[in-house]
Design a protein around this nucleic acid. Structure first.
Lengths: 120, 120
DNA sequence: TACAAGTATAGACTATACTCTAATGTTGTT
DNA sequence: AACAACATTAGAGTATAGTCTATACTTGTA
């Protein structure tokens, strides 16, 4: 599929998809037998990758971290041990974030209590 | 206290503190009776605010969101209802983030399973 | 008093992550 | 053939959040 279809299927603009391509997150293919243009062609895996990018971004992962995740998912040059090491590291960082968010919840709940007691 | 002490107590550089001052997150006071300089003086509340800024930043809040939090905490011009509305909104967004993080954990655990089954 | 250390300001610079524009070429439809 | 729609590239611009430099003035210490 060409970039326009990929964009429609993922809801990510062609501009941003090209930015991800330049950043190395996804890889389109150019067919050698087509000489008239140099259009990129994308497969179903790329749709999945873009969905992962969107989800991972929404929880605060950087492009660099997402790039590591995609490698752990698709890169055939990495060993199982390397992949697991990256995935475990990400799981730990997620747990840390959840912990911090829960602390922030407590703090904000304290604010609420203060607001209610100081003003009523 | 002057900026250097504030910096030492919070671990935030003077540069960054001045950036927060410019961004409206904190407010130093200048004493009119001192004519020889125009140094900013900070109080204990500012220390607390900077600690809040650091914590809130670590969970991914933007300067703008933190500014709202500080208003809900310290601004005397806001009504109780307005403050509670902001705090409740932040609590909801935190819950949403925790939910997304848990989904991401599930996804990464799936990756782990795939890595283990595909390669052993 | 000399001089190091502290303070303020403007503005330049960096990094991340886009977002957009312009120029140019290709493809598809009528 | 004409023309809209699509594709690529380079490079400029934007927003966020700092980070650093240069200049200049003030304060504290030997």
């Amino acid at each position: 599929m060409l970039i326009n279809e990929l964009s429609k299927r993922t809801g990510i603009t062609a501009h941003t998809i090209r930015f991800y391509e330049k950043s190395g997150l996804i890889k389109g293919k150019r067919y050698e037998n087509v000489k008239s243009n140099n259009y990129y062609h994308y497969d179903e895996d790329t749709v999945e990758k873009l969905e992962l990018i969107r989800d991972a971004k929404s929880v605060g992962f950087t492009i660099h971290e997402i790039s590591q995740l995609i490698d752990a998912w698709y890169n055939n040059k990495m060993t199982v041990t390397e992949k697991l090491s990256i995935l475990d590291e990400k799981l730990l960082s997620i747990d840390e974030r959840i912990k911090q968010l829960k602390e922030m919840k407590k703090l904000i709940s304290h604010f609420k209590k203060d607001v209610l007691t100081d003003n009523c």
